[in-house]
Write a protein that binds this DNA or RNA. Sequence first.
DNA 1: CTGAAGGCTTAGATTTTGTCTAAGCTGACG
DNA 2: CGTCAGCTTAGACAAAATCTAAGCCTTCAG
Lengths: 147, 147
Amino acid sequence: MSKLTSELREAFRAADLRPTAQRYAVLEFLVSGRRHSTAGEIVRGVNRTGSAASRATVYNSLRALSRAGLVREVFTGGSAARFDATLHPHHHYICDLCGAIEDMAWFEVPAPAAARVLQGRHVRAYEVVYHGACRRCRNSKSGRGDI
Amino acid sequence: MSKLTSELREAFRAADLRPTAQRYAVLEFLVSGRRHSTAGEIVRGVNRTGSAASRATVYNSLRALSRAGLVREVFTGGSAARFDATLHPHHHYICDLCGAIEDMAWFEVPAPAAARVLQGRHVRAYEVVYHGACRRCRNSKSGRGDI
DNA sequence: CTGAAGGCTTAGATTTTGTCTAAGCTGACG
DNA sequence: CGTCAGCTTAGACAAAATCTAAGCCTTCAG
């Protein structure tokens, strides 16, 4: 068993999630594979790597992993939900014109300002989402960025 | 014409958007109505208030308003995209267990930390999205507290 | 070790969400 | 007015997500 897999097994135990081959496969795909995968991509990806999982199971697994905090659904702007493993936090930049999503390096939002508005709410994680016109759209703009 | 409507008219002019009855209706629904509506709710809501707009038009309007920065698609965690009017900025708190979305008061994220990762990107707006277990879910939990 | 019990998985149907198209309508502007 | 470009529309279409009923597997008490 790989080091990665034992790390995942530990995460499952900590989250009180019943460990199944399918859930491992989904999480492993997200941790080691591409970011921002759609559920459909995950289904195809998982079934290409020897494991097998039906569509319904992938959806169920994503929900379970999401509730456990191991996976997060990220802002898309597109028609399909996209998922990220949450082991490495990062912020997002979204172009309002073409819909592109860019990852940005992590930095902490100072606690004092946030604490006032959170009012004691439980926080497991957070991210900052920036909106604007990306470089490409700004360059190819003609008054109003032709997408 | 209501004060609200003239405010919207001004917003349209500033954004260089052709003002149509349907776009007014969509924006007005989002500004004055419930927050975080799905496209489907907007279609139903608009058509219940005397105005009329087809599904395609609502989607087109949302895209146009989004490009103009008057409306924003917010992270949901659900199966359908949700939209928010952006006239008054605020942050979001999302419950990973039940999917509830709560608005939170605005505060600024200090610029220095952000500037480093933005690397000169154009920013029109931003928001912080917090994830956790909401009060209701924490109280009604069955022994697994702070997931 | 053994055998329930309840959660997990599955295929496929179904529902929901979002996009596209072709034709007609309308706001902007001279 | 008259024209043009952009907007709206109904409905077909495509994609995404959920539901269902039956069987399988992890767990845990005995």
